[in-house]
Computed example of a mutant assay.
Amino acid sequence: MQGLPKNKSKWFLIAVLVGLLLCIRAGEGQWFYDPLLTYFKGDYQNLPLPPLDSFRYGVHLYLRYGLNSLISMSILFVVFRQREQLRFVAYLYVGLGLILGITFFLLYNSSTDAPKLLIFYVRRFLIQPLFLLLFIPAFFYQNKHR
């Protein structure tokens, strides 16, 4: 127990923010338009990709990505309290979001032979806060070696 920080409000805030990420995940079917949710839960390798309303899907995809990104950046700020790192992460989230979103729609619309597993993983990076799992250890390492 000695390793735990004395600042309990910091841990409470982190728990609330993680809870918000879990709420987004739990409500994904009701709050966001995503026909690929049920598609990728089934035997998708033998089925054609479902039709998408590209504009509506793009809005919901980026809304979810934005919410996850804001909450993830809040967690990073609570943990590290460094505005310079937060600014850097914000640029990374915007850049990676644009690259992954464009890649997703290019793969989805390119042909019926697009590798479905690649579409699955690009989409996964957009709808899940996976970058947070990469940034936390990277920042711990960077702060340790300063």
Results as ranks from 00 to 15, higher is better:
S9P: 00
G19V: 00
L130S: 07
F40A: 01
K41D: 11
A90P: 02
K116H: 03
L21C: 03
L76S: 02
V89N: 15
L96N: 08
Y33G: 02
R81H: 14
V59G: 10
L96R: 03
F135P: 06
E84Q: 15
G27C: 06
D43H: 01
M73S: 03
L98H: 05
R146V: 09
P35T: 07
F139H: 08
N109P: 00
M1W: 13
L133T: 04
C23P: 00
Y108M: 06
L117F: 15
E84P: 00
P35V: 03
Y108G: 07
F77T: 08
F120Q: 07
F12Y: 10
L118H: 09
A90Q: 01
G19P: 06
Y121L: 12
W11P: 00
F104I: 10
A15F: 05
I102S: 07
G101P: 01
I71M: 06
L61R: 07
V16L: 09
E28Y: 13
F131M: 14
L63H: 06
T112S: 15
L86S: 05
G19M: 05
A138I: 09
S54L: 15
L132D: 04
L134N: 09
I99R: 10
K6Q: 13
E28I: 10
K144L: 14
C23I: 13
L4C: 12
V94R: 03
L4G: 01
L21G: 03
P35C: 04
Y121R: 11
K116N: 02
T103K: 02
Y121M: 11
Y62L: 11
Q85T: 13
D43A: 11
I14K: 05
R56G: 08
L132A: 02
L106N: 12
G27L: 11
S72C: 00
R146H: 13
G3N: 13
L20M: 06
F139Q: 02
F125P: 00
Q128T: 08
L117H: 15
Y44D: 04
K144R: 11
V59C: 10
S110D: 12
L47R: 14
S110E: 12
A138K: 01
Y57P: 06
K41Q: 13
L36W: 06
K116P: 03
L117A: 14
L36G: 08
L37K: 12
A90T: 10
A26L: 12
L92S: 13
